[in-house]
């Protein structure tokens, strides 16, 4: 189970607003975070990953990752999270397999995950040789390599073309069902989240509302 309550002041140009969001996701749950751009969706995800520090609140996975009251802040590299970046952030000088092995040097596990996202035959290719959808699946497999307690997806489908989005949405759903990992996914499209997630958190340039 993941529980969080995050408060952070955001600066968008000259204006300030307060990101305030809280939710509770059961183990194996799939939370969607929706909201217009600039509503703090990515910031919330980065706080959960440990890449940014909220001003107040708490974040608890299997252990407490952040608690402003007790001054606890566990940095990203010591949290059991996987993050799929919006630009995928694949290491350009490593092959698909190399990217997975960087996360965890376990070859049989890497082959298993490549099989899961149907990239086995691309194991030896470099990111620049892949299509957008293949890169996204590589990033997904890499994020799963360390068996995270929480998988974070930052607009994973936004960079893809229309017809690929639906297919990859199904891919994410399938991975979710097969691995049972808890997921928090950010998207500006409520329709997309509605198809995939079990819970929805709406950010509207202020307080987050759970549906």
């Amino acid at each position: 189970m993941i529980r969080f309550q995050v408060k952070k002041t955001l600066r968008a140009g000259a204006s300030l607003f307060r990101l305030q969001a809280e939710a509770e996701v059961a183990k194996g749950g799939f939370l969607g975070v929706a909201g217009p751009s600039g509503s703090g969706k990515t910031t919330l995800l980065r706080c959960l990953a440990g890449l940014e520090r909220p001003e107040a609140g708490f974040i608890a996975g299997p252990e407490v990752w952040f608690d402003s009251a007790r001054g606890v802040f566990v940095p990203a590299r010591r949290r059991s999270v996987g993050l799929v970046f919006q630009d995928y952030a694949l290491f350009p000088h490593m092959t698909v397999l190399g990217n997975l092995l960087y996360a965890s040097n376990d070859r049989s596990r890497a082959m298993e995950y490549l099989d899961l996202v149907r990239l086995t035959e691309h194991a030896g290719h470099f990111p620049r040789e892949l299509s957008g959808g293949q890169r996204q699946r590589t990033a997904l497999a890499r994020a799963l390599m360390r068996s995270p307690d929480l998988l974070l997806l930052d607009e994973p489908l936004s960079a893809l073309e229309e017809d690929l989005r639906a297919a990859l949405g199904e891919e994410v759903k399938r991975v979710h069902q097969q691995t049972g990992v808890t997921i928090v996914m950010v998207s500006h499209s409520r329709a997309e989240l509605g198809r995939l997630t079990t819970q929805l958190l709406e950010l509207s340039g202020g307080a987050g509302q759970v549906y």
């Binding site: 890449l51 990203a76 590299r77 993050l83 970046f85 952030a89 694949l90 290491f91 996360a103």
Partner: peptide
């Protein structure tokens, strides 16, 4: 250097030493 590569390395559990030699330097 793309900052998201450094952050990706952090979320994959790597400290600065490993990130420096395996991501920053080759990049």
């Amino acid at each position: 250097l793309s900052p998201s590569l450094l952050e990706a390395s952090a979320t994959l559990g790597k400290g600065w030493f490993e990130t420096f030699f395996r991501v920053v330097l080759p990049q």
